[in-house]
Design a binder for these strands. Structure first.
Lengths: 159, 159
DNA sequence: GTTTGCGTTCGAGCGCGCTCGAAGCCCTAG
DNA sequence: CTAGGGCTTCGAGCGCGCTCGAACGCAAAC
């Protein structure tokens, strides 16, 4: 299971303060300890999204899900793995359209690997830019907090 | 000018790789070297948003802007400062509604400082959570890139 | 046997944050 | 004198990503 490696690296990257949120760990442990075929409710629970959203993703062509005798969705390991990946990409801001393109590439076979790789590299850069931007905003916010909370002098600005 | 401090701290926080983007520096240098009263086009340029958006913000009650003899908007230093702050908060994900509340507090006077501080503290935590989440997604993306680009072995997965 | 509960499909609706178009005013350049 | 450009207001429209409601099916519990 590559999961442990991933988690380790993620933890390393995060560093120190504040323990990793339960949901975050959850969303990385791609179905190692969970029942093999899952119901929509179980998957929704695992991914912390609504069954509505899962159906929406399926309608959008992001994943195919089999049905049981009653017409109920049955998520196998592959579907769950794909959804774990998709939700992580969504969480990091990749648009639906790009994900649709990506899964189309996946379904098109291994000769699309280079293009998939390109997409991932670009997304990696997007995430990095976003983190830098947020870090900047964080500094600005902390500065403002300092002017409000750290001093009662004449330096308190009007905003 | 507190700007230098802020920028220094931001840069420290960012650390090392990749130079700070020009826009980022721009949006931190709250109007020190720019013309005193500015036109909408100048402010739009400074903040890297559209005049449409600036009018929208004004309609939303985020900022009051004077008019000149022709009815054209005239942004004074205070308005520009506020807009710099607002766009930074927007960029870091604070909803319009919260910003509307915040500026209402500002306009209500200094007795609302504690509540403003609360908002900023909460937003700071939101940003931090978001950064952690993105860091996690970044690790996941890099892991995936490694499986695609780093090996040609049998470990390449189907997604 | 009826109620409760979880699932299904389908299409419509919504919240957010812009984004745009129309119609008009004013100034300047050619 | 006219054309162009940049501004104004106002209301409508849009793209995204869900989110929901209606009408229905099946099954286990009471």
């Amino acid at each position: 299971m590559a999961t442990d490696d991933l988690m380790t690296r993620a933890l390393d990257a995060l560093g120190d303060d504040a323990p990793l949120s339960v949901e975050a760990i959850h969303s990385l442990t791609d179905a190692a300890h969970v029942p093999e075929p899952m119901t929509i409710a179980e998957v929704a629970d695992l991914l912390d999204i609504s069954p509505h959203t899962l159906r929406y993703y399926e309608r959008a062509g992001l994943v195919e899900v089999a049905r049981d005798g009653y017409g109920h969705r049955v998520y196998d390991a592959a579907a769950v793995r794909r959804l774990v990946f998709l939700t992580r990409m969504r969480l990091s801001g990749m648009p639906m359209r790009d994900l649709q393109h990506y899964v189309a590439l996946v379904d098109a076979g291994t000769e699309t690997v280079p293009e998939r790789l390109d997409m991932l590299l670009e997304h990696r850069d997007t995430i990095r830019r976003r983190i830098r931007e947020l870090t900047l905003s964080l500094a600005a916010t902390e500065y403002k907090i300092a002017t409000y909370g750290g001093s009662t002098g004449p330096d308190v600005q009007d905003l």
